[in-house]
Nucleic acid binder design. Structure first.
Length: 280
DNA sequence: CGACTTTGACCGGCGC
DNA sequence: GCGCCGGTCAAAGTCG
């Protein structure tokens, strides 16, 4: 009945519902801008990662993995970790937003709680600020025009970044995004745009910026994980090029169809096999 | 009219 | 302690 009527995420992380976030092509940014290099410090064995994700989703233990992954994310700048994580460890917990923290919930009856359950979700929840009361004691209740939830430490969600060669900054990925900010980044002539999933129950965010090294390369960093289907998203269907992208990665050398598919949907010149391209 | 983008300001973390 | 910088907010503007 209603448990899978489209809007609500299925009870649990079914492979077709919670997208393993796009595709973190393991691209070591060449000389990378410090702002992103940390993200790229991870070198996933994406093949395994994807498999792990799909297979592991249904396992009850993924909760722990999520937390673990979250920790990994926080260790970001540890080069020693690069290439050390096995995909199953690092990606299986790709979970983020909708589960972060406590997880999942899966709340068969309603997905709403899922979001709120995350104590660390300080940044978002803008939709329904429960009570930012934390006033932190510093600010007078006098309406600080821009009062933020203080006192709460911002814990980042697991992030995945990938580079795509494209002329457009904002690539279609099957989800609707609302831009909530743009900032000039240091060491880069290009601004960085901040997007948030328009789904009120979803706190996934993504940053989009162009590589200062190669302006044709768009660096997209996802934070969190969708807990809903993309727009017009047929269950299990790949409409999202990033998802397709993922599929492509699973068969980097034997999926000509996917390549064609991508080409059809997205005229831009996407670099699918960046492992090769960037490796040069 | 609602949804989305733009943009300036604010806040917190971090390095010096 | 101070300043820089990334990230976010929210008012105003734009568009369909």
């Amino acid at each position: 009945m209603g448990d899978e009527e489209g809007v609500d995420p299925p009870t649990d992380f079914a492979p077709d519902s919670s997208w393993p976030l796009p595709v973190p092509v393991p691209v070591p940014v060449p000389g990378g801008p410090d702002s992103v290099s940390d993200t790229f410090n991870y070198f996933f064995d994406w093949d395994s990662a994807m498999l792990s994700e799909f297979e592991g989703n249904l396992q009850p233990g993924h909760t722990e993995e999520i937390e673990r992954f979250d920790q990994l994310d926080r260790t970001e700048t540890r080069p020693d970790l690069a290439g050390t994580f096995s995909a199953s460890e690092s990606f299986a917990g790709g979970g983020g937003s909708c589960v972060s923290g406590s997880v999942t919930s899966s709340n068969p009856g309603g997905s709403t709680d899922v979001l709120i359950s995350n104590p660390s979700m300080s940044s978002s929840s803008s939709e329904d600020p429960p009570e930012k009361s934390t006033g932190s004691g510093g600010k007078p209740s006098e309406i600080p025009s821009k009062v933020k939830k203080k006192g709460q430490k911002r814990i980042r969600q697991p992030r995945f970044a990938f580079m795509t060669k494209s002329e457009v900054d904002h690539l279609e990925d099957g989800y609707r995004w609302r831009k909530y900010g743009q900032k000039a980044v240091k060491n880069s002539p290009f601004p960085r745009s901040y997007y948030r999933c328009t789904n009120s129950k979803c706190t996934v965010k993504k940053r989009v910026e162009r590589s200062s090294d190669d302006s044709t390369i768009v660096i997209t960093t996802y934070e969190g994980q969708h807990c809903h289907h993309g727009v017009g998203f047929p269950r299990g269907g790949f409409i999202n090029h990033e998802a397709s992208f993922a599929g492509q990665l699973k068969h980097p050398h034997s999926s000509p169809q996917m390549t064609g598919y991508l080409g059809t949907l997205f005229p831009q010149e996407y670099v699918i096999d960046e492992k090769e391209t960037m490796a040069k």
